[in-house]
């Protein structure tokens, strides 16, 4: 048994029971429906801001982008403005592709030796596809949830729902994003267990968010399709939260509280974990700087004078030999 993921799995199961029993047996609706969500949101906001400020406080002393394409040099050599951006627009484009499409992750190519001397290239796409599926479906799910926090619901959320529920299967319709999210999280989990190198470098804290998000999606789907809960009541609660008039409507069902408890835990956990990569990707000096250091001087705020070996000291030591060898000197 793998201790690393067992620990996280047990933790998530424990959290599940905590919320379920807390609501169903101990009647702690107020705690799980109001107090904890507010507290978690507060922790999330303050935590994330803190973290980002912490990073921003450390300066960027050197401009060290990884150059992944041809530099801009001579006018007749075609520069790669995306992978070796010389201008700010180039950097923006590079970051855009990194953030939205995980371009670096896409870079995995492999070559296979075919029959004879031919080489074929193929892309190793699975991690990239899995990551894209995971993040995009997660984003879709979050945006869809804005329905619960707005009144009236903006029309574009309806549009998104239409698109997302395109494959109408049963009533209520299944949202593609939910299923994809579940599948993608499961894939990411599997690859952490199955691929030996990835398993070897994984820590408990790499499994925890996966289980947690799986739990969120799972309880979500459970509520919608199986343990049907009182949607109107749920919206009352969420609207209460955003309008700062929190209420606890009766009879929403324990699963709902588990769902929002999981979300709260994720929010509170976020700033202290690797999930902060969401902010970090924007601050990574190997990606977010233009590759024009030779054209535009970069300033290091803490640049300090250092001890050097000056020419004078050098000539002092070697003057005679230099003169003898016919090398020009400053002082004869």
């Amino acid at each position: 048994m793998n201790v690393k993921y067992m620990f996280s799995l047990v933790a998530v199961i424990f959290l599940f029971l905590l919320a379920y029993v807390g609501v169903e047996a101990a009647g702690l609706q107020v705690l799980f429906g109001i107090v904890i969500p507010y507290a978690a949101l507060l922790v999330f906001i303050i935590g994330v801001i803190n973290r980002v400020i912490g990073w921003a406080r450390s300066p960027v002393p050197f401009r060290i982008p990884s150059t992944c394409g041809q530099q801009r040099s001579l006018p007749w050599i075609k520069a790669s403005e995306l992978d070796n951006p010389f201008t700010t627009q180039g950097v923006v484009a590079r970051m855009f592709l990194e953030v939205l499409f995980f371009r670096s992750l896409f870079r995995n190519t492999t070559s296979k030796l075919g029959e004879g001397p031919k080489i074929y290239f193929s892309l190793e796409l699975w991690l990239w596809l899995g990551a894209l599926a995971f993040h995009w479906s997660f984003l879709t799910v979050i945006v869809r949830h804005l329905r619960l926090f707005t009144e009236p619901v903006p029309f574009w959320i309806g549009l998104l729902e239409k698109a997302d529920g395109f494959f109408q299967v049963g009533v209520p319709g299944i949202f593609l994003s939910g299923v994809v999210l579940l599948a993608a999280v499961f894939y990411l989990f599997l690859r952490r267990v199955i691929i030996p190198q990835v398993n070897y470098v994984s820590l408990s804290q790499d499994f925890f968010p996966l289980f947690l998000i799986f739990g969120i999606a799972f309880t979500g789907i459970l509520m919608r399709h199986f343990a049907k809960i009182d949607v109107i009541g749920a919206k009352q609660l969420t609207m209460g939260l955003v309008t700062f008039h929190p209420t606890i409507p009766q009879g929403i069902g324990g699963i709902f509280y588990v769902h929002i408890f999981f979300v709260s835990v994720l929010l509170a956990y976020f700033p202290f974990s690797k999930l902060m990569h969401m902010g970090g990707i924007f601050m990574s000096p190997t990606r977010n700087l233009p590759c024009n250091t030779r054209a535009v001087r970069h300033i290091n705020p803490w640049n300090y004078p250092v001890e050097t070996h000056t020419y004078e000291e050098y000539e002092e030591e070697f003057r005679e030999k230099m003169i003898e060898a016919g090398l020009p000197v400053e002082k004869e």
Binding site: T110, S111, K112, L113, I195, P196, Q197, N199, Y200
Partner: peptide
């Protein structure tokens, strides 16, 4: 070592995995 062995078996690209290739 086990995880290296996994890599050697899995990665079919002879240039990314010269030992395996």
């Amino acid at each position: 070592p086990a995880d290296t062995a996994g890599f050697i078996k899995r990665q079919k690209d002879p240039f990314s995995n010269p030992v395996g290739g």
